[in-house]
Design a protein around this nucleic acid. Structure first.
Lengths: 345, 345
DNA sequence: TGTTTTTATGCATACGGTTGCATTTAATTC
DNA sequence: GAATTAAATGCAACCGTATGCATAAAAACA
């Protein structure tokens, strides 16, 4: 059987509470005793029983992460997968366990967010790009649990008092577009996605850039995919005419951009010679394709680290003021898919 | 505050133990009472406190999954990522929570396997392709925790009594090679990986196929990569001479195969016309590349489901006999990268 | 030296469930 | 209808830790 604090107490010749206090660095303990207890605990490879601890303190050394459902869908999960990895890594540094769930149990329909809090007593929650019922949101507020929303900025007043870490998607949309404009492109097709505020924001950036540079905004130059490789591919194949009239394409996810690239290759349209291409996300996968994608980089590791640190702060002290919004700037990574050349040809 | 069984008891006018029994489907409870209690619990959105439960039963509704470190490495994580997804999905169906860890905490150096058991009291453990210290293995044995090893077959007698779910990598190696042989290829380059039993087994299959068809086995036709896209690419670039002498390449991971494909394209070697290519894993990514990869398919979902079911059995009853080894047959998925044609040219 | 203050330790209870055992109530048997 | 048995419920202890409170020991003070 696993050792308990009681066992350690026996070995050390002290009471169980002294052991508990020693291991928890309480300052009610003499240096001498503490060290003796710690030594024995180490020797015996003592591990706390997380359940007992959680029961007693009503919190656990566990963080919950809520991912959006589409995480399951390979075609679009490369960005979130990478984010996941960084989150895991950051939490592991703090010796925190990680429970992962989708916002809703896809089989029982249970509200996993509520469950993680009530049932698992997670010490904090990171919620990645999830819509949620107002009721759940209300519940989160009331629970007072440390909470960080990730990925995109939500402006709803309902989210007041909730921390958010996100990249500036408007800026990202602007950067990608402006790069193309500076290469003298004027007719820039925008392949975005229908659902999701981040895409709306990226489109706003696209439009801002055009207007800043006095290029008329043309709604017919916006197409909507579903974020998948296939949809990028399909949009190119289905809009042959449109593609002949543009000199550049700005695609709002790398995965779609790779689909676009593939389709263009098949149609014998050369990138970047015939069409310049800009993606969004800077996923590692895109370096597998040629030409390498110029793309808007979102610093995933930074997002993960900042979100976790914020969580740690809140967990560490109840007095930390909630509702901080951390905006991270995306950057443009220039590779080959736009060419060094301008659009003058 | 969250509701407890005591609260429900009060509302239902019964004792706390009756509530507990009702919610746990004990047969010591009358149908009538049970229903009344359940109804109230539902209405109140009662959720068990997992800590309290875990403390008294000494087990939790939680499964641990241990992933290999390289999971972090994108270049090789596509297969495991997909496996992960299926595992998560399967466990969610059973309303089980999931804690994920690497076998060793990469920062504190702690043995996560031991920790998950002692500290988190996970009800079961799935260990994906991990080497581990004999001491840890011994510990696992003793703990009696439901346990399934995933991915490849380990024949060590030390693993006796431990369940394994794996695909037959020897068979897979055989299938891929034989397909090429039947297309009349005789000089088949094999790009494998240095570390990992599964690759050793795939190479054995490769050799078996050659010998079965009376083709001399030539060790110099085996190259070793590190499973990454880049290493597939590099091997092709660094072994130009060798590649000119073969008509087919069998690559032991799809990710590497895609790297190979990319390099061949760059060298203007046509696939499948000049060289036929077979991969291994059947990851979704490979359908993004052209020509589509002929590859050895490992049924990831089946592996996940079988592993979980086995775990459920063991969790459900202590009497279940341990040590079952479930072998799953890989299949060959013929796509475009070998051509319909034979090697007679 | 006696008294007060400080510091270190132990005692006992709470956390929210599960479960063996005792008890009550209902059903069955004679 | 009394005695026996079965079914349903309640009582209470326990799981392992944290922590308020009481207390003992040590230090400081008078």
């Amino acid at each position: 059987m696993a050792l308990t604090t009681k066992d350690i107490a026996l070995l050390a010749g002290v009471s169980q509470s002294t052991v508990s206090r020693s291991l928890n660095n309480s300052r009610l303990i003499s240096q001498e005793t503490r060290e003796r207890v710690l030594k024995i605990a180490r020797e015996q490879e003592f591990e706390f029983n997380a359940n007992a601890r959680g029961l007693s303190t009503n919190r656990t050394h566990t963080i919950g992460i809520i991912f959006p459902d589409e995480y399951l869908d390979f075609g679009v999960n490369l960005y979130f997968g990478s984010l996941h990895t960084h989150l895991r890594e950051t939490l592991e540094k703090r010796d925190l366990d990680l429970i992962i769930a989708f916002s809703q149990n896809r089989f029982t329909g249970a509200d996993n967010i509520k469950r993680l809090i009530i049932r698992r007593k997670v010490g904090g929650l990171i919620i990645v790009r999830s819509r949620m019922a107002p009721e759940t949101l209300e519940f989160l507020h009331q629970s007072g649990i440390p909470l960080v929303f990730l990925h995109f900025h939500q402006e709803s007043t309902k989210l007041e008092g909730i921390d958010q870490v996100y990249t500036d998607h408007v800026k990202g949309g602007f950067l990608g577009t402006e790069h193309l404009i500076k290469l003298r492109h004027k007719k820039i097709l925008c392949i975005s996605a229908g659902e999701g505020s981040e895409y709306q924001q990226r489109r706003r950036g696209y439009r801002n850039a055009l207007e800043t540079h006095h290029i008329p905004y043309d709604e017919s130059l916006i197409l909507y995919g579903d974020r998948s490789f296939q949809s990028g591919y399909d949009l190119v194949m289905q809009n042959r005419g449109l593609l002949d009239t543009v000199t550049a394409v700005f695609v709002h996810t790398d995965v779609m951009a790779l689909g676009v690239l593939e389709a263009l290759k098949e149609r014998n349209i050369k990138v970047p010679e015939d069409i310049a291409l800009v993606g969004y996300d800077d996923i590692e996968l895109s370096t597998y394709f040629h030409p390498h994608l110029t793309t808007v980089h979102q610093p995933r590791e930074k997002i993960a680290v900042l979100a976790c640190e914020r969580l740690f702060e809140m967990i560490g002290s109840k007095k930390v003021k909630r509702g901080k919004e951390i905006q991270i700037q995306p950057t443009l990574v220039v590779r080959e898919s736009c060419g060094g050349k301008t659009a003058d040809r």
